[in-house]
Amino acid sequence: MIEALNLVKKFGDFTAVDGINLKILPGEIYGFLGPNGAGKTTTIRMLTGTLKPTFGKIRILGMDMEDHEMEIKRSIGVVPEEPKLYPYLKGYEFLNFITEVFREDPKEMKRRIEELCDAFDVDFLERYISEYSHGMKQKLMVISVLMRKPKVIFLDEPTVGLDAKSAKILKMLLKKMAEEGATIFLTTHILEIAEKMCSRIGIIDKGKLIAEGTLEELRKMEGEFKASLEDLFLKLTGQGEEVERIVKEL
């Protein structure tokens, strides 16, 4: 379970996240959407313990982030926006490293890695990470998280750089893991993904959570009963009319 209470992050005078409240239950796939610079990545970084909030409380799996940061980090999985990995390690060395640092069972991990490598067509583990393309790094990052079967997974634009087959497998795996009780928190700019995958959606704009609910609830809220998520998103963020004007002018 993920809980955030009145979460605020300020960078000097600029407020990146402004009083966000979240409660995401086990088994949910929560889509966190917003325009560029809305505060999505900052929120994820606070929820994963990589950035300290200016104000507010975070509880993951019932544990307070301030008091149990290490336990929380051990129980969660994070796929960041940019798959930045140690360039001087080989792929399998990185997975060894993650297994050891997270104190996972090596035998179980070996089995999981083999399964995931087959699923994502990964046959480049003995190469140096510095020689990987963006997509290859993304696959390695995804494997390093999914192999541990964490109870809470945060994914920031997880399908960027993945080929169609791998993206499809990832989406299906996330759904399966959610059905098994995992909590999934993901951000994406591809609204079709959010529409198809997420059980609940939160929309953030200028650091504030401006709407939250299932797709049906969002439609009801806006009175647009047949609208796509894309239309709702643009309307909620006030970008719909702007898009029309720009296209007209072009």
Partner: peptide, 13 residues
């Protein structure tokens, strides 16, 4: 080497 992968380094337990 930790700084260039800072999102990863900071997410390690």
């Amino acid at each position: 080497q930790e700084y260039i992968v800072i999102p990863l380094s900071k997410s390690l337990p």
